[in-house]
Write a protein that binds this DNA or RNA. Structure first.
Lengths: 175, 175
DNA sequence: GACAGTAGCGGACCACGGTCCGTTTCACAA
DNA sequence: TTGTGAAACGGACCGTGGTCCGCTACTGTC
């Protein structure tokens, strides 16, 4: 079923594939797809899961600066960097998972994992800030639809990386 | 027609009103609604237009720090402040206008007005930055669906204002 | 006043995401 | 082997955003 989705997405582009088509391709009823994944976002999340897990692993147990051991500001920079790359590689899927229904992004579990990670680092780098809010603000420029829009406007990955890095450094690098 | 929409939105909540219903209430065919506004986002934009224009006016010709005359960092703070308040007052409409279709936010004219405004101020405050990118990053936390999510999570307007202000100050206040 | 050309309208129509319920299938007991 | 309950399934169905085309009504001409 995930295989069927993967195949169709690769063939025809994520946006052009209906859930009916996926159900048909998987040889299963539409109801089954929905029981399994809840909604379109759920399916995208499932497909992204493995890739995201890998990044989470690198954050939790990998070498610095992404993993533990480096100063918080550096870890934050490394994180947005790595996330941006992941996002860039799977924009369409991210869009599906974040924008399928209203506010989907802020309901899926992985968002809260990233948020928690950023909160901890913000608390370490700038204890005087409202870490919970600032974490949302840091994640905001990583929204999938913004990324897509920037792409079509001609921004390439390196430029976004550079821009976001400079912002993070300004925010968290101790003066 | 705009009146009809306004009325229904007020009565039943923006999300619960279909375009069919608006067309019916306005005593006009659905096709007419679409010819006039393009899509759901267009209708929301039209309803927001007046309110946004007022803010633009204050920015262009009003008193500092929102209007011309104050240092760029202060103008930026005043801007995000004022925008946040506008957003808070009309979240549902903003959501409609930004999330109706994919990437709608980055296609509507007003976004580019705000973007341009921020670009100019960023160039003034921090010429060494990639102003075009950073402007997007500054606007990102002002996304309507994030605002909505924060609300339902218990953040009140003052807290968001404080958080965003501190971020802007860190970014643009000269050390 | 009759007529032709045209701009604008309306609502039937389509595709899609999501729901719902009748039916199948299967594990287990007798 | 057969009977029974429950869980999983499938696809008909619904409401919605968005399209499209036949028709209306209005303008200007003789």
């Amino acid at each position: 079923m995930l295989e069927a989705a993967d195949r169709l997405f690769a063939e025809q582009g994520v946006t052009n594939v209906s859930l009916d088509a996926i159900a048909a391709e998987a040889g299963v009823g539409k109801g089954t797809v929905f029981r399994r994944f809840g909604d379109r976002a759920g399916l995208a999340v499932a497909l992204l899961d493995e890739r995201e897990r890998e990044l989470q692993e690198r954050i939790l147990t990998g070498p610095p600066p992404l993993g533990p051991g480096a100063p918080a500001a550096d870890r934050l920079t490394a994180f947005v960097d790595a996330y941006l790359e992941l996002l860039d590689r799977h924009v369409e899927l991210f869009i599906d998972s974040e924008n399928a229904s209203d506010g989907a992004r802020y309901r899926i579990g992985s968002y809260w994992l990233w948020h928690r990670h950023v909160v901890v680092l913000v608390e370490e780098a700038r204890p005087e800030l409202d870490a919970a809010y600032v974490a949302h603000a840091v994640l905001a420029p990583l929204a999938a639809d913004l990324h897509q829009a920037l792409r079509t406007e001609g921004f390439d990955l390196d430029r976004m990386r550079a821009g976001l890095t400079s912002v993070v450094q300004l925010l968290f690098r101790r003066a």
